[in-house]
Amino acid sequence: MRNYLDDQPIDLAGSTPRRPLLMALMLCGLALVLFFADSLGFLTPVRGPLEWVFRPVAQQLTSWRNGVSSFTTTVTSLPHIRAENEDLKRRISQLEDELIAREQARAENTRLRQQLGIEEEHPWRLLGAEVAIRFPDAGRRVILIARGHKAGIEPGMAVIAQTDSGPTALVGIVEEVGSYMASVLLITDFGSKVSSRVLHEGETALGIVQGQWQRGSRLRLEQIERSVTPHVGDTVVSAGLTSELQLPLALASVPGGIPIGTVEAVRSDGYALVAELQPFIDSERVNYVWVILGQKN
């Protein structure tokens, strides 16, 4: 056996010395006795207190080890964590984009379904458009829609909208058209006049619906034919007279039968009857409209 302390090989020239070997064997015997005694449960009363002293120390040391290990892991994997963080950020951004696109598709789907429903009920060819801008001043009731001449929109075309509770109804008339934008004069504007028809118990009477926003009201039905006296709750729809006559006028494209509103009040204005109307659509809340491009064949 080599003596490593003196760095000199030593030759024991014999077997292991007896005394240390005997001592080792004695310790083995003692350990064996302890082993069997503990296995048979004789040492349980001793082990309990020993473990009670030992465990907290071991637990504390283990928690230190875990802390150091966790710190080391964090430090060594910092580049990886950074890369992963960047990757996750990119992924989140991508998912947000996808989410927005999905929401947009969902909204578009809803609008297309609405359009399909309208087109099934009415013989109109429709073009959907987002309301891009509302005129900021109260002087005019105009909205700008994100479709223009390129999409086939012409001045005089009727613009309709739909709410959850009401019918598809007239919102305004296309006034001016650009390549990609068009302004729509709302029917509530004082400058808006639409030939209309009031429906009362199977009879109709013609009149003109004029906007009253600038006068502190909304819509008024004027110049009503005397053949029928309108009553509160009667429905007023567009008459489509100019459309039928195919005149080269701005209103020539407004078809008849588009709901406008209901009669709220009727009063006499000299020789004529005048009816205050409640429009079906609150133009303030309209975000999406359809332009009636024409009639289906």
Binding site: M1, S15, T16, L25, C28, A31, V33, F35, R47
Partner: peptide, 26 residues
């Protein structure tokens, strides 16, 4: 069980001690 690790270590010690008693390895 008390003594089991001690026995295992003592076994290893005795085997190594006996096994290396005649070796001259640098």
């Amino acid at each position: 069980p008390l003594g089991s690790h001690a026995l295992a270590l003592l076994g290893a010690v005795i085997v190594v001690a006996v096994g290396t008693s005649r070796l001259r390895v640098d």
